[in-house]
Design a binder for these strands. Structure first.
Lengths: 221, 221
DNA sequence: GCAAAAGTGTTTGAGGTACACCCATGC
DNA sequence: GCATGGGTGTACCTCAAACACTTTTGC
């Protein structure tokens, strides 16, 4: 069934930058393209927006189809619409940033049997389309907002040590922090709480495990 | 000439939130819709993206067509794509924020003879589509970034007094500032310079006029 | 001379930054 | 017992906020 319009219409897609933190570095989820254009290249997961679904819902659906994950955090980065960013036809994409804790991310390619993998943000292969540009925007946004502690907390697994959290901060902001100052800052926020357990099995003093505080208690006036 | 596609394609528009400052309040440029839907309602200036122009260029073109102005500042706010935000067909819009100095804005409706007017952001008529939501996003963005002084400077005319500038700040941020602290802050930035003239004709001591410093001198490392 | 806005420095407090040592565990 | 990262408190410094009086003009 062909669809006809009086004026030319662009196609609209969503692309999702899925970031997580593991192995002491920031990682992004990429899928390998099977079809042309850019067959064989790595790309951000994404796809066409259905005609009756909202943009955010489309991003959420694509994310689930490709990763089986419901992101704890999903925010729009903006629209990218350079006229020849796709060689087939005019395609405008709306990019989203998803933050996913490492332990909730099962990189099992979804319905379409494409390869999917995590890459360290520092060591990327060449990407399809303008996805490198989109990814730069995503990491920039993350850096800008990394001072909001609960932003970075979205990347942490269910239980983590304060040193784990500090490493994530340092990787994102690109600068080293003082351990005592970092912990002092955390105390004031009340966004983490002790899990009451220790991480055993290390060749040194075991670290206390923490978890996110469930519902961010909004401060009253 | 009809255009046909295998899958349904949404229409894509740009809408521009043109903000300026005058009469001691923040103002937005609106146009009155001639045609259905929402005929007679006020709306943000905007229109369809041509098939071979970039999003920013489309925003820039629409802005010029409606106001005859080349904005000194134009930044994307994001995409708005709720499935039934337009009753005709699925329309996804990419919203832009434009900041224009009051003295450069000639509200002369462009080629299409629609009425165009400035409205105080505090006293708006009912708007077409989801434009109220887009406008809220715009003023929020402005507020968030009003701490960057050159952001607010984009709203000022060629020559202004320091009190004018302070009033603009206060209207945007919604809180009153201390005159001496405000001026102290400005000195450190080096973003304004004296125009060497005074604003005469007031019933009190005349104020010194200032202007923006031309090219923002990026600080060296 | 009176009303009205312009212009100008100092003090204080809060928050951020720098910094060093003992502790608990595995091997 | 030694190597390794975990955990803790204080001094200083910088920047933001509070605050009042004199000056210049038009009428």
């Amino acid at each position: 069934v062909p669809y006809t319009y009086e004026h030319p219409h662009p196609a609209v897609t969503v692309d999702v930058v899925v970031l997580t933190f593991g192995g002491n570095e920031l990682r992004v989820l990429l899928v390998r393209r099977a079809a042309a254009p850019y067959a064989g290249r790595w790309a951000l997961p994404g796809g066409f927006v259905e005609i009756d679904e909202s943009l955010k819902r489309a991003a959420w659906r694509e994310l689930r189809e490709e990763t089986g994950v419901t992101a704890s955090f999903l925010e729009q980065l903006g629209a990218f619409g350079h006229p020849d960013r796709d060689p087939r036809e005019r395609v405008i994409t709306v990019a989203y940033l998803a933050l996913v804790p490492a332990d909730r991310l099962r990189v099992a390619p979804g319905s379409d049997a494409r390869a999917a993998r995590l890459f360290a943000v520092g060591k990327l292969p060449q990407l399809a389309f303008d996805h490198a540009k989109i990814l730069r925007r995503a990491t920039q946004r993350l850096r800008e907002r990394s001072s909001e502690i609960d932003f970075v907390l979205q990347l942490m697994p269910a239980e983590f040590t304060l040193t784990d959290l500090q490493r994530a901060y340092e990787a994102i902001s690109g600068q080293l922090l003082d351990k005592r100052n970092f912990r002092k800052r955390l105390q004031g926020e009340g966004l983490v709480e002790s899990a009451g357990r220790l991480r055993r099995g290390t060749a040194h003093r075991p670290a206390e495990l923490y978890r996110r505080v469930a519902a961010a208690p909004r401060r009253a006036i």
